[in-house]
């Protein structure tokens, strides 16, 4: 097939990396159960249900580079890793094996970079950034980035986006009803009867 990847709807595959589409697969009816499980795991504050703790440390380190915790909460404070833990046992379960392989490949490169580090999470910050920059177009990066954004911005019931920190960052106020004016330009048009900026 010829290259026809970008479309009007530009859906996910355009932006989520090579394995982006795959992350959309299977197990969708289990989602409500996943949300419940995530909420209770978070309340308990604790153990991962599906992730190996070492894998979790690598994933959280990557997520924290993708959306850093700086002057505002990032992936770490949002609890993105808890989202991933739940999602990999439910809605993204079909990707768990691919993710494990991707992490193993990545960690093989870690050893080449710093034999003492053993794993991505063990690298110092500069080397983590250096390695991630090299891996920007890899499936593992695409997959972790996709899950990080989902975990940062999905409903908090999935375990991430704690206290709405993701929504707060982008300015999304989740209410069930709004009234006009909605934004600056329609307010101005209504006020002036004139829409010149």
């Amino acid at each position: 097939m010829q290259k026809t990847k970008t479309t009007r709807r530009g859906f996910l595959r355009a932006s989520a990396g090579l394995i982006g589409g795959g992350w959309l697969a299977a197990n969708w009816p289990g989602i409500a159960a996943a949300a419940e499980a995530a909420a209770s795991a978070r309340d308990a504050g604790a153990e991962f249900s599906h992730l190996d703790p070492l894998d979790a440390a690598d994933l959280e380190a990557m997520a924290a580079l993708i959306i850093p915790d700086d002057d505002s909460p990032g992936a770490r404070e949002a609890g993105v890793i808890y989202f991933m833990d739940t999602a990999l046992g439910s809605i993204f379960a079909a990707q768990a094996a691919g993710l494990a392989t991707g992490l193993a490949d990545l960690n093989a490169k870690v050893v080449a970079l710093d034999a003492g580090a053993k794993r991505f999470a063990g690298l110092d910050s500069a080397r983590q950034i250096e390695l991630l920059r090299r891996e920007e177009s890899s499936p593992i990066f695409g997959g972790v980035r996709f899950m990080t954004l989902c975990g940062f911005l999905a409903m908090p019931s999935y375990g991430g986006n704690r206290n709405h920190v993701g929504w707060d960052l982008i300015g999304f106020d989740h209410r069930h009803a709004w009234q006009p004016p909605f934004g600056y330009y329609d307010a101005k048009a209504a006020g002036n009867g004139d829409t010149d900026v």
Binding site: G10, F11, L12, A14, S15, A16, L65, I66, I67, P68, D70, S72, G74, I129, L132, E136, R145, F146, L149, C150, F152, L153, A154, G166, W167, L169, I170, G171, F172
Partner: peptide, 25 residues
């Protein structure tokens, strides 16, 4: 929000890191 984060930014925006976060915001 998620659809925006994946599709909504100009193509020359960095895809991760502080600059990405600023653009996202």
């Amino acid at each position: 929000p998620i659809f925006y984060a994946l599709n909504g930014l100009p193509p020359d925006t960095p895809t991760w890191g502080s600059e990405f976060k600023r653009a996202l915001a």
